[in-house]
Design a protein around this nucleic acid. Sequence first.
DNA 1: TTCTTTGTGTCAACCGGTTGACACAAAAAC
DNA 2: GTTTTTGTGTCAACCGGTTGACACAAAGAA
Lengths: 327, 327
Amino acid sequence: MAKKPVKLDDVAKEAGVSKTTVSRVLNHRGYLSDETIAKVEQAMEKLNYRPNAIARQLYKQETKLVGLIFPTIDDPFFGQLESALENELYRRGYKVLMGNSQNNPEKERSFLRQLLNRQVDGLIVGAHNQAISEYQRTNLPIISIEQIVSRNVPVVASDNYNGGLLATQRLLDDGCQHIIHTNYPEDIPTPNHERRLAYEDLLRKHGQTPITYHISFDDPVEKKRQIIRQIFEDHPEVDGIFADNDTNAGLIMNIAGEFKRLIPEDLRVVGYDGANATRILLPQLTTIQQPINQMAAVAVEMLQSRINGEKVTSRMLPVKLLDGGTA
Amino acid sequence: MAKKPVKLDDVAKEAGVSKTTVSRVLNHRGYLSDETIAKVEQAMEKLNYRPNAIARQLYKQETKLVGLIFPTIDDPFFGQLESALENELYRRGYKVLMGNSQNNPEKERSFLRQLLNRQVDGLIVGAHNQAISEYQRTNLPIISIEQIVSRNVPVVASDNYNGGLLATQRLLDDGCQHIIHTNYPEDIPTPNHERRLAYEDLLRKHGQTPITYHISFDDPVEKKRQIIRQIFEDHPEVDGIFADNDTNAGLIMNIAGEFKRLIPEDLRVVGYDGANATRILLPQLTTIQQPINQMAAVAVEMLQSRINGEKVTSRMLPVKLLDGGTA
DNA sequence: TTCTTTGTGTCAACCGGTTGACACAAAAAC
DNA sequence: GTTTTTGTGTCAACCGGTTGACACAAAGAA
């Protein structure tokens, strides 16, 4: 039952030529007579020959594989991002090795270590874990998205500071007097953190006191809901919320209902991300839209350059405010 | 600049032993003295040695990679499904090669052809394209999810017929007189199609005329919206809709607003899937929940069995109705 | 003392492709 | 009629690990 797979040699024997000739037919190189090509192709067809990709990779020293390391894929933002990355990479002949770190440093490290063993030609990462030393001492081409990984890894990010300004300004323009912000609980300078800085800077300039609640990206939903309820309990006067992502904005809108707040009459909400899936399910949400597909395209382009041995520098892309009805 | 990567031989030389010994240290096999082990490990550390995974794969004839072929990953259902699959596979020591067919048969075929070249140890597929002959003539272990691929590929599906019954029954119990269904436009017997059959059977049993509108999964959103508007225009009397997925249910709820229908007073809606992301953004939606994580676990378990050379048979998992407020 | 057994490590073949070097015949140039 | 060019194909080394077969020394058994 377990018949051995057909190999190059078998085809060569069947066609009455040498391995080299078959390989040449396969790769269209060197001089071949039409007659020989036909013979070889018939033999391949007859034996249903499939070349062993691993053997080729070993010799060529390239796998045409790119690893993606992100926290999860079950999320509107990351789903769209990885989907766009896969598309761009496929166009350039790369396939994708996907690793979800789940914000588990152990898993991320183990994953990384394996990919570093010449399993991939490059890496695009956006996982939240810092300080994984493996990122430093490798010369595998790496690009990071919306995340600072290491000094020598170029970053693709959207203009988070301006996004924070746009969102906060909109709430101010709406006349909100008590604007609260939710953000990811980190004091380290991630791009996301810029959103908070913009919010705080602008709010202070307008004489309001910034208040930021921390919601971990990977907390279970129920915990997120708890924190949001806490906002309404601690600050019943709140009349504007700038959420650091659309999922949280969605939760806020639901819980506002629990507290009998009408949106946008009693409470205005601005989200962040503007991913496809949330645009479809929550079209009424006003949000800051990141150019997700463009970020993917740029990241892949940069990675390709690095694989080609060129130097690249970090890039920042513009965001825009998308009008729904919630602010 | 382009310093050659360190190889097994270099480590052997550094430690003053043979390749075999280093390989043994690496794989913990055979008799080794503590002294030798220490010497070798020091040498590996000093040279920052990383074993070449490709070379190992070539000899071992296994890659510890599993390919996933699905229409897209930018979708609540598929996002959660692939996320769960990745998790389960990782637990068993497999990494994931992701391919989004985008319902592009060309891409799916090309992808498949490449993976078949001994790039992966197995495949889990849920792409919508039928009749890709490559699926037939390979003896690579394959499991399919919610999709019929080929006679010899076992399927993991949820109980779609019962899901259709539950949804339709709920609308009937609510007293709906004019129930419409949306489904994917295929006449071939996919598991999804069972939802429609259940709807039609049950509706006829209650003396109502089944009406099904077709919405392609991969249509652009605007087209989907058009079709839904058409429903309200063609059938202003509609008072219940059973959507074949939650995204469509979300669109229906939005467009119901355009037509001044209140939910659930004027119109009741039942969705399908109950994925995490939609549960968070649309908690008010009544829907049929597929056991997505469990389906992933079962699929991986089945795949592992097939890789081990055991026979497996298709499995069907139960669904349940989740109460929101829309029906 | 001689014959196992156990510990330690080396040799060389192997996995399945790719390719530079080279052989040889036929056609073209001198 | 040589010499050069062009077309066609083969040989053998190589990519970087893994492992069965085997050599040899030291310890234990007969």
